[in-house]
Design a protein around this nucleic acid. Structure first.
Length: 474
DNA sequence: TTTCATT
């Protein structure tokens, strides 16, 4: 149960065995609870690091170990310039990893070779990680490999990839039971090597038992990973899916909700009712809200004038549209609205659901749905919303029966994202599954406009709904 | 079929 010490020059082995019992091994460093450490035995030295020092990432650290616990472990390999345990910015929770910079480059190399994956710290189920931090590396060089055979081992994958460069890491992703998930990460020394592997291997073969050909691509970026997690969490927590963003109106709606949730949760967390899950979720949501504002932005938030008023979405009432719920909201497009350039703010990610003419609308919700409503004509509005509260509720469920127009006026839309699996998302999007018009011309116009509308990686398929008995061949 | 974490 102690760290395996690789060959150390200078006969420091005695020192090494002493260090693992922790305290007091370092004169001159008492009182440094976090961060910087001075050279042992020479307190007067101002810590300086080599010009070519390497910042190391330390992973798989038990969360009950802080800097002072870790220091003795790493001091064996040289003078520590800086050691910082990573903590969650909102909760202060230990993240189970740290950054470590030695004064000398050589110390980092020694520590890495002696410690990396050489020991599992108490309570951890994977070995300690000691390797250059991401910030030290240049360029994308880590690949995600998908559609592997679940029987394939690290060695199998290595063999497949070694022809294209030096492999620094090769990891099969496994579930808790140790079973392969059929995918892996492969890290090369350079971007060029990784790219060469992609070129040669992506789609090149189909592994036995895999449902499609081998996938070789750069691993997810931080942003992509955050988005992926958010989607998972949204599912678990019954919240809204970021995939809704390309829908414009609902994207704005979901985003508003998300930000409000995040703010709420953060304030709860800061108010002393600290629930780690809530705080975690808040942090995630804030990250995601930031992502939304940044490149994936759907619609600008409707600002409210009062500084302390939570952002809300308002939509003017539109009495002219007949409706069982008497509604305001999405259906409220003045029919004659026109004249503004395309709603770039709404479809900021380059997705344009319909050709460039675009209504004037003060509200992002209206802007986003304006196009649809133009085609919808006066009857059978497709969706309703009541979201003028400061904290919006999900739009009410609309009874689906009796919402059909005459023959030739009803569309069926395929390829709505299957991520919208949970009940609330269904509520949100069901109204768009069928769209009815009061005349065939409007229906055709809608098909022309909306068929092929890209949502995420998919394109909507919009066609006339088949007559009731049309699909009974017998 | 996207990881255990990267200030």
């Amino acid at each position: 149960m102690y760290i395996k010490m690789a060959t150390l020059a200078n006969g420091q082995a005695d020192n090494a065995s002493l260090s693992t019992n922790g305290l007091g091994s370092s004169p001159g460093s008492a009182g440094h609870m976090n961060g910087l450490s001075h050279s042992p035995g020479n307190p007067s030295t101002i810590p300086m690091k080599d010009h070519d020092a390497i910042k190391l990432f330390i992973g798989q650290i038990p969360r009950n170990l802080d800097e002072k616990d870790l220091k003795p472990l790493f001091e064996e390999f040289g003078k520590i310039y800086e050691l910082t345990v990573l903590k969650d910015r909102f909760t202060g929770m230990h993240k189970g990893c740290a950054f470590l910079t030695y004064c000398e480059r050589e110390s980092a190399l020694k520590a890495q070779s002696a410690l990396h994956e050489q020991k599992t710290l108490p309570g951890m189920n994977r070995p300690i990680q000691v390797k250059p931090a991401d910030s030290e590396s240049r360029g994308d060089r880590k690949l995600f490999v998908g559609m592997l055979n679940k029987q394939q081992s690290e060695d199998d994958v290595r063999r497949l990839f070694e022809a294209f460069g030096n492999i620094e890491e090769c990891t099969i992703l496994r579930g808790p039971d140790g079973n392969s998930k059929g995918c892996a990460f492969v890290k090369y020394s350079s971007h060029a090597e990784a790219q060469a592997a992609i070129n040669a291997l992506h789609g090149s073969q189909t592994m036995p038992g895999a449902s499609s050909s081998l996938v070789v691509k750069f691993a997810d970026t931080d942003k992509e990973r955050t988005m992926r997690r958010m989607q998972q969490m949204a599912g678990q927590m019954g919240m809204f899916n970021p995939m809704a963003i390309p829908f414009g109106a609902y994207g704005a709606y979901a985003q508003a909700l998300m930000q409000q949730q995040a703010a709420l949760m953060a304030s709860v967390a800061q108010g002393g009712y600290l629930n780690p899950m809530a705080a975690f979720a808040a942090a995630q949501m804030q990250q995601m809200a930031a992502l939304n504002m940044n490149g994936l932005a759907a619609a600008p938030m409707t600002p409210t004038s009062g500084g302390s008023t939570p952002p809300g979405i308002t939509a003017p009432a539109v009495p002219s549209i007949p409706s069982p719920i008497g509604v305001n909201g999405f259906t409220g497009l003045p029919p004659q609205a026109n004249g503004q350039p395309a709603a770039e703010a709404v479809f900021a990610n380059g997705i344009h659901p319909y050709p460039a003419q675009s209504p004037t609308a003060a509200d992002p919700l209206q802007q986003a749905y304006a196009g649809v409503q133009q085609y919808a004509g006066p009857a059978y509005p497709a969706a309703y919303g009541q979201i003028s509260q400061a904290f919006p509720q999900p739009p009410p469920m609309i009874p689906q029966q009796q919402r059909e127009g005459p023959e030739g006026c009803n569309l069926f839309i395929y390829h709505l994202p299957q991520e919208f699996g949970d009940a609330e998302l269904m509520q949100m999007f069901l109204p768009f599954g069928f769209v009815s018009f009061d005349n065939p011309a409007s229906a055709q116009t809608a098909i022309q406009a909306m068929n092929g509308f890209q949502i995420g990686m998919k394109r909507l398929k919009v066609q006339l709904k088949r007559p009731k008995d049309a699909n009974r061949p017998y």
